[in-house]
Design a protein around this nucleic acid. Structure first.
Lengths: 195, 195, 195, 195
DNA sequence: TATGAATGAGCCTTCATTCAT
DNA sequence: TATGAATGAAGGCTCATTCAT
């Protein structure tokens, strides 16, 4: 494996296990069995390394979502599939997922916007499907792009509560996820007789 | 103002602005115009300081939510009010809100569980209202406590996307919030003719 | 118990258990359930506190030695008794004993010489007994005062090896002590036929 | 000179002059004209630095003792030579010597036992010589290994009193040493007519 | 592409001591 | 006699980064 990849992999684990503050160049170097200096041959500095990790994670999530809808089914079915995929990705590969949200907002400006094009594409894919559902009368939404964001946000909320371990110990994780997913989707569906 | 309060206030800003890792006792001391040592007269160490901040924030959110429903209205109305209050609190006082989620999960064990009783009470209040709505046939939920958590989680997702500045610049914040809120509530409502 | 005594007692334990470096005024205060400031009402500073501890210990050792020889027996017997007492005191009350040697030499000048008069008296008592033995032909020594110091020094060596845990684990402590004591005394005794 | 050696040398002085507690990494760095950080390139931490100093000192003492007996003479002569060498080493190079006893017993467990093998070898050399003297009828000892330890302990006592400046100002240092040495050796010698 | 040596800045924390009460 | 609040100094240590090789 190339050193670059090795560094990324080691960093990813460390980032998740110890948090950004305790992910140190030294420790990464030690874990990758190279000198600390060597990291700088591949990444300009710690921020760039983090950015590379983010890009990677975003790309993977995007790919997972894309792959999961292979043309089959109507808009609602696709939406459910996407929600499923999103939740599964986030919960099965928390490392990848969490990194996307790891950069603190006030540090975001440091990160070049064009790196987030990938994620925009995902939103647009979501918006397209929602728009499709709207036209078919299945979904009751106002603005599809906004809805894409609300959908993602709600799913992120579910994931976030679990990954940050704020879920009550009295509550079964799977039940929580199922119920949440149903409610979220329900919020998008056209009601026959509006309340 | 007491030094203790001054420290808490200064820390709170710093915690939000720079994150826990970069919130340093020295900087807090400097900002509060006291010696670094003095902080230790009021807080045993950095962790305890963070804990005090968390407790504070949780208490304030709990109070805001409690105050907002003053007996008026039916369950659905109360639920909408609570969602409103939650979002307003989080977005108007992001400092208070964010601190609640600032402790990274892997560091959670450091923090005594009993400090989170406060937050449990909030969940139980939510659950009670949801149960009330269920009995009145307004809300269609399975397990009220679980629903309390899914509600909170979805609201948190909305807040989280905004505060972490992941919202697309093309999207109007207010529109996003309104639409999100409607969808979330919609997910709880009993459908006349189930789809 | 007077606070002064309480402080002394607490300090003594702490001094032995943690060493001078880690015996802190704060910790002493905490252990004695008083404020750190209060210590300064009884002792000018940390050095004075240590000095008080030393004086105390020296006085106790001196007393133990004095008491042990109550006129009975000849000089050799007295010498053996003193050696016994010395070793027993040091090994049974290592706290008291070690403090006597705890002040580092380069810090000795800080400590007023007249505080060590007590210990001089002990040496003089030893010298007197040795002189008595010399006159009776039992002991073969050159200068009694010098001999008092060599005796003490050798005994101290034995104690020191034990207390500093440098004794080989293969060696039985009691055997070591017995053999050492015999050899030391033997070094003082007049040989019938000098070698 | 290599920085490692420079650090060791500077530390050694500081350790003796100020004691372990007041020997600070920063001060060592300053005295060696390097940054404090640089020390950590050569020694993992303060304890390891102390350990390196100890090992060094032990090795040097062991070597001095080994070298001093070059096969010549009988056991008694060798024993006297060793005592001489021991005392001279300790008093001429007090820094090297004192470090051997500088680690406080309660901190000993931190230090790996196998580092003290060197010193065991010295004891065994002593024991061999004593055993030789016993077989030749020159020395009257019970257990040679125990005797090796008592010999060392007695010599250490002499050194200790001098280095810790507890020797009475009325007493000539050289006289004290000579007399002590004679008495110690005397304690080992077979008495023609036992008393 | 890789490294060892080096560093300045910064970290959390503890300390002995003082001062006003 | 006692204290709570405060502090300057210092401690061990880790960090991201650079430079010469």
């Amino acid at each position: 494996m190339s050193l670059r990849k090795e560094i990324l992999e080691v960093s990813r684990s460390m980032l998740i296990e110890k948090g950004f503050g305790k992910m140190s160049m030294r420790k990464i170097a030690a874990a990758a069995n190279v000198s600390a200096t060597s990291i700088y041959l591949h990444f300009k500095n710690k921020d760039e390394l983090l950015l590379a990790l983010m890009e990677d994670s975003i790309a993977q999530l995007a790919e997972a979502l894309s792959n999961s809808i292979n043309g089959n089914g109507d808009a609602l079915y696709k939406l459910e599939t996407l929600a499923d995929t999103f939740l599964r990705f986030a919960l099965e590969r928390p490392q990848e997922y969490e990194i996307i949200y790891m950069v603190r907002p006030e540090e975001m400006p440091k990160f070049p916007k064009d790196k987030f094009q990938h994620i925009r594409k995902v939103y647009e894919m979501l918006a397209d499907i929602i728009e499709e559902g709207r036209q078919q009368g299945q979904l009751d939404v106002d603005d599809p792009l906004v809805s894409a964001y609300t959908l993602w946000a709600q799913l992120h909320g579910i994931v976030s509560v679990i990954l940050s371990r704020r879920l009550d110990t009295r509550i079964a994780r799977d039940k929580f996820i199922e119920q949440a997913k149903d409610q979220i989707i329900q919020g998008f569906i056209t009601q026959k007789t509006p309340v």
